[in-house]
């Protein structure tokens, strides 16, 4: 995907092209600056916050302080449990529904599909008032299950997998059926393996969404034992705490670290996955 479309178009003079190149680098620098600055403050002591000295000593002290000033280990565990639950449920629920939409014809199919797509527009955040009432009536407020509930089925996932399943050649399906495979076996042996890249793409998008999600978890949790990282970071860095910027930067980097490291290592896969998920 990095293949360059070297523009073969003639008729531009060197000066304006050089100007464009400089502009492009300026934009990239502008975009990189906030992140680079956070890395700088996180790894240096407070006196270097606005004093840029290349030989300033690098320290991990901010990370150590941040780690010990809030139960981040517990927050990591909570986030991990949340995304595991959400992703596992989404994969199963969306696969089954997408298979039904792609393979079968049944009365009311179009209407049902339309009703599924409603969730693309009216996302769970808009319905947090009622969803909170539901969680309360189920006695689930301040539980990890409640944080995941509105996201266990995803219209986006159903849509994405249905599009993929529809491209599975009918011959493969028929061949499996002739060999005596039932619908579930056909799904697992034919459809799911062919959709593997889409599953990876969807998994990455879903994990980053829920790793970063704040609003609903903020509303529905109120204790250390359930809070995910995002809510923990929000509580930790509330202005009235008077925490130092270096420590906040360290905490921000720490909470984003797994995704960040994953992204830096597998940059192409990340970008391609978001692309694949977006253009279906």
């Amino acid at each position: 995907m990095i293949q360059a479309n070297a523009s073969p178009i003639a008729g531009t003079n060197g000066a304006s092209r050089a100007l464009e190149t400089v502009g492009a680098y300026m934009l990239a620098l502008l975009w990189a600056l906030p992140f680079l600055y956070v890395v700088w403050t996180a790894f240096h002591s407070a006196e270097y916050e606005v004093n840029f000295n290349l030989f300033a000593p690098i320290t991990l002290e901010n990370f150590v302080t941040a780690w010990h000033s809030a139960p981040f280990a517990r927050y990591f565990l909570n986030t991990f449990m949340l995304i595991t639950m959400v992703l596992a449920s989404q994969l199963v629920v969306c696969t089954l529904a997408a298979y039904a939409f792609a393979k079968y014809d049944f009365p009311g199919k179009t209407i049902l599909f339309f009703l599924v797509l409603v969730q693309l527009m009216i996302m769970p955040e808009a319905l947090m008032v009622e969803n909170y009432a539901t969680a309360a009536s189920l006695g689930l407020v301040d539980t990890i299950v409640a944080m995941g509930l509105p996201y266990l089925a995803s219209a986006f996932g159903i849509f994405l997998l249905r599009q993929t399943f529809m491209t599975v050649p009918k011959e493969l399906d028929d061949a499996a059926r002739i060999e005596g495979a039932g619908p579930l076996k056909i799904l697992l042996k034919v459809y799911v393996p062919l959709a593997k890249p889409v599953y990876i793409a969807y998994g990455l998008v879903s994990v980053s969404y829920h790793w970063n999600n704040l609003l609903w978890p903020l509303v529905v949790t109120n204790s250390v034992t359930t809070r995910p990282l995002t809510v923990g970071l929000q509580v930790f860095s509330s202005p009235d705490q008077g925490v130092q910027w270096g420590i906040i930067s360290a905490a921000a980097l720490m909470t984003s670290a797994p995704l960040l490291i994953g992204f830096l290592l597998f940059q192409r896969q990340f970008v391609q996955s978001f692309m694949r998920a977006g253009i279906k």
Binding site: A28, W31, N212, T230, A252, V271
Partner: peptide, 21 residues
């Protein structure tokens, strides 16, 4: 490819971390 990385990077950071920054 470095530029693409810097443009895309904010996407994978949590908004709450970005806002604190």
């Amino acid at each position: 490819s470095l530029m693409r990385m810097f443009f895309f990077l904010p996407t994978i950071l949590p908004m709450i971390a970005v806002a604190n920054i």
